[in-house]
């Protein structure tokens, strides 16, 4: 997947706080590789038998083959090579999901955002600058999911030249869900999948994850979320941004203006049953802002959100209990009610 095209959450910020004290005989096995322009970590957890060498190697091989496969399959170049675009069953499924999220978020999530992301090309440490207004205006008309037309089953046509489809905002979530499925098939009882910040905790064990404090160095977390067969995805303005004339330009774009989203939020973390949902919803909720973002998640079955604002406030959706999310003691953040 083209890494420039992450109009998506980049690295979250997970610090897997492994709470393995109570099950002393259990061990972990980890494998890390670099895919999809990010880091992919798979951690398996269990007793000697669960993690027997043959068993775990087989699981790892299957998982990383699948991710390699998906990376290739959903690469922007490959998907947009010919026009009209032909989609197989899996891509058709992702397209349908994407368009659904575009509809319910009024375009805050949009798989045609690619031309805008490409124009800004925000890459930390490199020569970044704000594009000219005319350039942005030219590109913004190309960002509109409504201009994708299905001409026949599995064949889509883009209305404007220069438009392209990019599943980068949803593919990592999809991949995480698929990996969890594979691990279950391989009879692995418990573990963590981390696809560049799309985290999925699977199995009967509850895992705790730290959520990064945006203002501190990486690894300092503001709170801890507990997950069991759930995904955690965070979208935020940190990690991927540049500064020009004292102003911060980050990587989540307002699909209406063509500029990075500007609102009261620092980050949105979404806890959901499916990582695919969390992937799309965290980006969209962030772009929509606090009020509309909370509304979006309250109306969505199977997803909850943790909203962090620039005023050091944290807002939680109604389904998050005290066990699900705990603030770090003596931190500067405060949980507020909406």
């Amino acid at each position: 997947m083209n890494k420039k095209i992450l109009a998506v959450i980049f690295l979250i910020i997970i610090l897997a706080i492994t709470g393995c004290n109570s099950e002393e005989n259990n061990r972990r096995a980890r494998k890390t590789e670099f895919f999809m322009g990010t880091v992919v970590e798979v951690i398996l957890y269990g007793d000697e038998e669960d993690l027997a060498k043959d068993k775990r190697e087989k699981a790892f091989t299957k998982v990383f083959n699948e991710i390699r496969n998906l990376e290739e399959k959903f690469s922007v170049e490959k998907i947009n090579k010919e026009h009209p675009i032909t989609l197989d069953e899996e891509k058709t499924y992702l397209l349908r999901k994407s368009l659904y999220f575009s509809e319910i978020t009024d375009g805050a999530f949009d798989i045609t955002v690619g031309p805008l992301v490409k124009l800004w090309n925000i890459s930390p440490g490199e020569d970044n600058k704000v594009p000219e207004k005319e350039e942005i205006d030219k590109v913004i008309s190309l960002v509109n999911y409504k201009k994708i037309k299905t001409v026949a089953p599995g064949i889509i046509h883009m209305e404007d030249k220069g438009m392209f489809v990019d599943f980068g905002g949803i593919a990592k979530g999809y991949a995480a869900d698929k990996v969890a499925l594979i691990l279950r098939e391989e009879d692995i009882n418990s573990g963590i999948i981390n696809l560049g910040g799309n985290v999925y905790a699977f199995g009967e064990k509850t895992w705790k994850f730290g959520i990064q404090d945006p203002f501190m160095k990486r690894g300092d977390y503001l709170g801890v979320a507990s997950l069991k067969n759930q995904s955690l995805v965070t979208s935020g303005i940190y990690e991927r941004y540049f500064e020009e004339n004292g102003k911060i330009y980050h990587h989540i774009f307002d699909t209406k203006t063509g500029y990075p989203v500007e609102n009261e939020l620092l980050s949105v973390s979404v806890i959901s049953e499916k990582s695919l949902d969390g992937d799309a919803l965290s980006t969209a909720a962030f772009a929509l802002g606090l009020d509309k973002g909370i509304k979006l998640l309250e109306n969505f079955q199977g997803a909850e959100g943790i909203f962090v604002t620039k005023n050091n406030e944290i807002f939680l959706t109604s389904g998050i209990s005290k066990e699900d999310f705990q603030l770090v003691e003596r931190g500067k953040y405060e949980i507020k009610k909406r």
């Binding site: 690295l11 890459s123 930390p124 440490g125 490199e126 160095k217 990486r218 690894g219 990690e239």
Partner: peptide, 10 residues
Amino acid sequence: CPNQICVKTG
């Protein structure tokens, strides 16, 4: 490296 995130991690 260009982004220095590894160094900033501390």
